[in-house]
Design a binder for these strands. Sequence first.
RNA 1: GCCGAUGUAGCUCAAUGGUAGAGCAAUCGCCUUGUAAGUGAUAGGUUAUGGGUUCGAUUCCCAUCAUCGGCUCCA
Length: 495
Amino acid sequence: MIDGLESGGVDEHGEPVDEKPVISIYKDDEFVDLCRGPHVESTGKINPQAIKLMSVAGAYWRGDENKPMLQRIYGTAWLSPKDLKAYLWRLEEAKKRDHRKLGRELDLFSVNDEVGAGLVLWHPRGSMIRHLAERFWEDEHLKNGYDFVYTPHIGKAQLWETSGHLGFYAENMYSPIEIEGQQYYLKPMNCPFHIEIYKSGLRSYRDLPMRFAEKGTVYRYERSGVMHGLMRVRGFTQDDAHHFCAPRQMPDEIDFVLSFSLHILRSFGFNEIEAYLSTRPEKSVGEPEQWHAAEIALEESLKRSGLPYQIDEGGGAFYGPKIDLKIKDALGREWQLSTIQFDFNLPERFDMTYIDENGEACRPYMIHRALMGSIERFFGILIEHYGGAFPIWLSPVQIKIIPIADRHQDFAFQVARELKEAGLRAEVDDRSDRMNAKIRDAEKQKVPFMLVVGDREMEEGAVDIRRRSGERLGSMPVAEFKALALKDVAEKVEG
RNA sequence: GCCGAUGUAGCUCAAUGGUAGAGCAAUCGCCUUGUAAGUGAUAGGUUAUGGGUUCGAUUCCCAUCAUCGGCUCCA
C-alpha cells in the first residue's frame, strides 16, 4: 500500500489517485501509527492524572460524508490535573449557560415536536427581548439612511429561476407549493424581492445609494441531525438589507456598512470582534477588475476600521467577495454574526439598471448584508453570552417589586404603576409566599432590580433596592430609584 | 443524511415482563413574613408514535419521529 502511495498511483484501497501524498509515521515504543500527526514524543509525557475520555462518536473517513464512518473516541489531555479540572469546569460553565436550558428556565422560547423540528416558538419573555432588540435595530436603521420594505414568504418558480436559486441553492429549498397550476417556493433568501422593488421604477444616479432593509423570515432545508436549539433551525429571520449603489460610491458604502455593523454589535455588548475577508474563488462570475476593485475596497475599509482581520483566499461566494464579522462571547467562543457580501451576479441576472449623469443605463453594484445574521441564532448567542442575565435595557422584566406582607400590596402596585409610566418594566410578586422565596425566584429569573417594600418603605414612600448581583443599595425614594433605573437603561448597563 | 446514545408528570430523575413513583413547579388552604426555598392538602402520566413477540409490554424486538454528543454541511 505504501509503495502505491509512494509511487503516487494508488491510494490505501488500491484506487487510483492524482497527487502523490506525503506519508508520515509516528512511533512510540512498539506502537506505530500511520498518521499526519503531530503526536507526543512519548506517552510518558502524558500525565495520566490529567486525561479524561470524553465521548464516542462516528466520524467520516477523511471527513467525507460519502466515505465510510469510523468510530472515534474523544479524549482530552492536559499538563496537570489542575488544567484538566479547569477545562472541565469551563465545560460545566458552558452547560449552565446553554441557551436551550436557559430558554426553558427563563421561559423565553421553545421548539416543539407538534410544530416541527427547527421551528421556533418565541414565548412572551423571549419576544419582549426580540422586540427590544428589533426596536433598537429599527431606530438605528432609520437614522442611517435605510428604507424599510416588507416582502412575501413565497414567490413564483420563475423568480427563483431568474435569481439562480433553483440552479444553485435548490437542495436547501423546500418542495414547491402549487397554486392554480403555478409553482411557488418558500423563500430561502430575501434578495430577489428587494431587487424587484428596486426595479419597480426607473432609478437615477441621484437616487443612489438605496438601502432596503427587512427582517425577512426565510426557510431553508436543514438535514435532520443538524438542528441545534436556536443556533441552527429551519425557519429564521434575517436582519437583511441590500444596498444598491453606483460603482464609484462603493468604497464609501462599504465604509458605512462596516462601521454601522460594528456600532450595532457593540451595542449588544459584543466588543471582541474579528473580521474575515474572503476573496475570489476559482469559479466565479463577474469581471476580474470588478472583483479586484471590490476586494481592495473591502480591505481598505477594514484597515480604516482598525479591526483585526484575516484573509480567506478564494473563500468568497461565486458571486462576490465578502467580509464576515465574528465575535467572541463571554466564554471566549467565536461566533459568526455579520456578513457583508458583494454581488456581481444578481444585478446582471435581473438586468438592473440606473440612469447615470450622461443619460445612459448602467449596472448598479449590489451589497447584501445581515448584521445579527439570523435573529434566532443571535438570540441564542446573546443568551449564552450573558448567561441569561441580560443587560437591563433588554431584560424582559427589569424590576420585581416584593411586598413583605399582604398589607404592602397596594403600595407595591402603586410603585409599579409609577415605574411603568416612566417606561420601565416592573412587576409585583403578589403571591402569598415569604419574601425570601420571592427574592430567590427573582434571582433565578435574573431580574436586574428587586424592590422590597414593607412597613418602613410604605411610611417613607421609599423602596429597598437589591441588585441581582446580591448588592444592596439600601432604601431610597421611588423617584430617586426611577432616575437610577432609567439611567442604567439609557446607558445599556450590564451586570 | 451518517455513527452512537436517549425518549417515563410542566422540569430534573427513579422503578418494573403483571398498566408507574420522588423532588421541584402547579392548584387550593393556613401562616403575614425584612434580603436566595415557611407549611398542609390536592391534582397531574394510553411510560414519544406505530407495529411485532407474549396469556400479559411501559419494560423485549423492529420501524418512524424527536432530542443529545459527534461527522458532513451551514446563518
